[in-house]
Amino acid sequence: MFFRRPAAKRTKPAKTLVVLGSGGHTAEMLMLMDSMPLQLYSPRTYVVAATDPMSGNKALTREQKWQKTTSPTGFVVHQIPRSREVGQSYITSIGTTLYSLVFAFGLVFLERPEMVLVNGPGTCIPICAAAFVYRVLGLGRAQIVYVESIARTRRFSLSAKLLYHLRMADLLFVQWEALAKTYPRAVYAGRLY
């Protein structure tokens, strides 16, 4: 969608890294995945904030449902330090952001995903930055797909702004047509809810 072309016709499953951003972000992401042909997006790595134990549990519950077994396989859940808590000052968040970045570069290097699927909030930025830098350096080949929250009807979130303006996302979805008019490289393809 941006300046890189889609991959050539493939049938081999793509290793997928999904960031579950907590609360409504996690809910929207799992809704999207409900509709995806997950046998093609496999194995899966979930990244959750260390402060958000709920999302890891939700991923497990959903994998059980998708795989129709109480002991699903082919996925892992990693915890990442959060770059900025709601309400944390921007000053103290610099230190934690740096830590998140180091962690994300390590994780993405080890996991080597072919697709990074994210929908905010800030937790997803270090992961996207790592995936993007590795690709620029020829050390990775992850496609970065971002879905802006349905709550954003007129203005981008900070995450969306960064990924859009730095052209880090290969596909950036918005869920309101008006937003796609403001940001022409964004894609409106319907709403999750």
């Binding site: 889609p6 999207l32 290969d170 869920q175 319907g190």
Partner: peptide, 16 residues
């Protein structure tokens, strides 16, 4: 709404 539109775009992006 429906996720199918997004899924179609993602599948295409990945070459599926």
């Amino acid at each position: 709404g429906s996720a199918s539109g997004m899924v179609r775009h993602i599948d295409r992006q990945m070459g599926f």
